[in-house]
């Protein structure tokens, strides 16, 4: 398995105010597919993504990604892990406001060992014409495509998308998801999409439902749809 999560627990707060954001999660994800983690607000799905991305640490349990036990990695190893293996796409894009589209992508390419060709990536995501613009000069959908390009430029092993259509309208959402699907098939990147939108599950190879920090459903989707066919 590409991702193995064993008895993952994450607690916030102390004593009576303790919150179990993840409460003994066990999960396996295969390489190369699209997995969708579904769940309502506060279910623990963003916490799970933070753990997978190496930006937060478990209280107990283990996470292994492509053979690396990231739950036991130190700060330097986690930095390398994020730099080499992970691509992030966030609901609010999190682009650096002071950098142009091209520079937002280059800022990642500059520290990557073997980045993809920046023009090809921009072309694939249809953002080349905006490359000299700043994030504030773009629409939400355009910004999200830049965020995907930024995540993909280093050709990561794992693409993590957190509510990537949460701030977008239906049409733009579909277009962005099409790009994610295109990237997945073109580069073979394992993709994990975290969302509360059940419709997105239809484009996934694997659907995981999380509630109150626990996995309540984990199934393969044999009839997955192209993003263009989703009813969002």
């Amino acid at each position: 398995m590409f991702i193995e999560i064993r008895n993952a627990k994450k607690q916030y707060g102390k004593d009576e105010a303790v919150v179990n954001a993840l409460d003994g999660v066990d999960l396996s994800i295969e390489k190369g597919g699209i997995s969708v983690i579904l769940g309502p607000s506060g279910s623990g799905k963003s916490t799970l993504m933070n753990m997978l991305g190496g930006i937060d640490s478990l209280t107990s349990g283990e996470i292994t990604v492509d053979g690396k036990n990231i739950s036991k990695a130190n700060a330097r190893e986690l930095t390398e892990y994020r730099r080499d293996d992970i691509g992030f796409v966030f609901q609010f894009y999190n682009l650096i406001a002071d950098l142009t589209v091209q520079e937002n992508i280059e800022v990642v390419a500059e520290i990557s060992d073997s980045p993809l060709n920046i023009n090809e990536v921009m072309e694939a995501l249809d953002i080349e014409k905006y490359k000299k613009r700043f994030p504030r000069e773009l629409s939400g959908g355009q910004q999200q495509r830049v965020a995907i390009a930024r995540a993909m430029i280093k050709n990561p092993k794992l693409l993590l998308c957190d509510e990537l259509t949460g701030a977008l309208d239906t049409k733009t959402s579909r277009s962005v998801l099409e790009f994610v699907q295109k990237v997945n098939s073109q580069f073979g990147t394992t993709t994990v999409i975290i969302t509360h939108n059940n419709a997105i599950a239809d484009m996934a190879d694997q659907v995981i439902v999380i509630r109150d920090g626990k996995i309540v459903e984990n199934r393969k989707n044999k009839n997955k749809l192209p993003a263009s066919g989703l009813v969002l």
């Binding site: 930006i55 930095t79 994020r82 730099r83 080499d84 999190n94 800022v107 520290i111 990557s112």
Partner: peptide
Amino acid sequence: TNISMLKILGYDNKR
């Protein structure tokens, strides 16, 4: 915010 984003993108503290 930028520091946190750069960290997420894999930048180390020195960079």
